[in-house]
Amino acid sequence: MIIRMLRAHMRPLTAWAVLALLIVYYLSIHPQGLSIGVLTAWSNQGTALALLAVGQTIVVLSRGIDLSIGPIMALTNCMASHLVNGSPVEVANGMILVIATGAACGLLNGLVIVIGRMQAIIATLATGTIFSGIALIVRPIPGGDISEGLSDFFSGDLGGLVPMSLIVILGAIAAWYPIRKSVLGRTIVAVGSSEAAAYASGLRVKRAKIGAYVLAGVFASLSGLFVGFQTLSGDPSIGLSYTLNSIAAVVIGGTALTGGAGSIAGSIAGALILRTIGNLLFFNDIEPLAQPLFEGLVLLVAVSFGAARLLRMTSRMEAFQ
C-alpha cells in the first residue's frame, strides 16, 4: 500500500525532495545561516508565485492553460494599491473587491473558452492583453498605497517561529482539498482525464471548465494581494514573468499538461524551487545581467520536459486508436 502511494505521488514527492536539498544548500551559503528572518524572507519571495501556481494547476487539471493569469495578478495588484487601505472596513471591502475582480476575470476566460469555443491558449492570450491594458489604466506607473498593518502581518512571522507567508502557502494547500473532494473538483479532474467520458457520465462539463478558470482568477487575485503586501504598491508590468514561471512550476511539480493528474502541493514545491534557484544565483555571485539567462534555461528545461511528456502520452494514445 505504501509503495503504491509513493509511486502515485512520485513526481510531487521528488519536487519536495529537490526543494529540501536546495533549501539546505541555500541556508549553508547564506551569511546569516538558519534564522527566522532568513526563512521569512525566503518564504515571502516564493508565496506570490506559489499562489499563482495553484491557480494554474487547477486550470491544467481541466486540460486547459491560462496565459492571462499573470495579467490578472497585475490587475488585481494595481486595484489593491487603490482599494486596500484606510479603515479596517475599507480594507476589508477593498480585499473583497480585488478578489471579486480576479473571479470575474476568470469567469470571462471560462465563458470565452467554453461558450465561445476558442482554444484556451488563444483566448487567454487575448484576455491577458486586455487585463494588462486595464492594469495600465488603473495604475499607469508603479505606486499607490496598501495597508501597512496587513503588510506587516503577512510578511512577518508568527511568534518568531513560523513565517506568516508559509502559513499562507499551507492554507492554499488546505483550501484545495475540500474543493478537490467537491462535485466541482471531481468534475474538473474528470474533464481533464477524458472530457467525452465525463460528458457521457452526465457530469456538468461546461460548468467545471468555467469553474476552473474562476478559481484560477481567485488565486491570481490572492497572489496580486500578496505582492501588494510585500511592496506596499501596485505595478502593472509584473504579469509576464509570473505567467511563464507559473507554468514551469506546474511542470516541475509533476502535473501533467494533458490534464486529469497533478498535485497542488507539487506545483507549490515547483514555485519555491524556482525562487530558491534565483536566490542561489544571487548568493553564488552570478552577474546580475547573467541571472535571467540561467533562469531562462531552467524555464526552458522545465517546459520542454512537460512538452516531451505530453508528446509521449499523445503518441501512446494514437497507438491504441
Rank of each mutant, 00 (worst) to 15 (best):
S165F: 02
L203Y: 08
P163R: 12
I134M: 08
G234H: 14
L184Q: 11
D235K: 05
K209Q: 14
K181W: 14
A216K: 00
G144Y: 09
G234I: 15
Y177F: 12
P140W: 10
K209W: 03
Y177V: 12
V138F: 06
P178C: 13
L161D: 01
V189S: 08
V227I: 15
L215H: 10
F219T: 08
L166F: 15
S165V: 00
I173D: 10
A198K: 02
S155K: 11
G149V: 00
G192E: 00
A174W: 11
I188Q: 02
R207D: 11
A212C: 01
V205R: 01
V162M: 10
G185C: 04
G159Q: 08
L232Y: 12
I146E: 09
G156S: 01
P140A: 09
F226C: 12
P140V: 10
G185E: 07
Q230F: 04
S221Y: 10
S151H: 03
A172N: 02
Q230Y: 11
P178W: 14
S194W: 05
W176K: 09
G171H: 08
A174S: 09
T129K: 14
V138T: 06
G156I: 02
E148S: 11
P178F: 13
I188E: 05
P236L: 13
L222H: 04
V205A: 06
G224V: 02
S182I: 09
S151R: 04
G211E: 06
V205S: 02
V183Y: 13
S165D: 00
L170E: 06
A190N: 04
V218L: 15
R186F: 08
D157N: 15
G171F: 08
I210G: 05
A172R: 03
D152N: 11
S182G: 07
G171K: 10
L232H: 13
V214K: 07
M164H: 10
G159A: 07
G160V: 00
V205K: 05
L225F: 07
L136V: 07
V138G: 04
I173W: 13
T231R: 14
L158D: 01
V189M: 08
G143V: 07
D145R: 15
L225T: 09
S132L: 08
G160C: 02
A172G: 02
L170M: 12
L136T: 06
A135Y: 06
G149L: 00
G143A: 11
G224E: 05
S193D: 14
K209V: 13
G192R: 00
L232R: 15
A216L: 00
A216D: 00
G160K: 02
A198N: 06
S201V: 07
G228C: 11
S221G: 13
G185V: 03
F131D: 01
E195Q: 15
G211H: 08
F229G: 03
I134T: 06
V183C: 04
G228T: 11
S147H: 03
S132Q: 12
V214S: 06
D235M: 06
D152E: 13
G234P: 13
G156Q: 01
I141G: 10
S151N: 01
A208W: 07
A220Q: 02
P236C: 12
A198I: 01
I173C: 15
L215T: 10
I134V: 15
V191D: 01
G171S: 04
S233E: 14
Y213A: 01
L184A: 12
L184I: 14
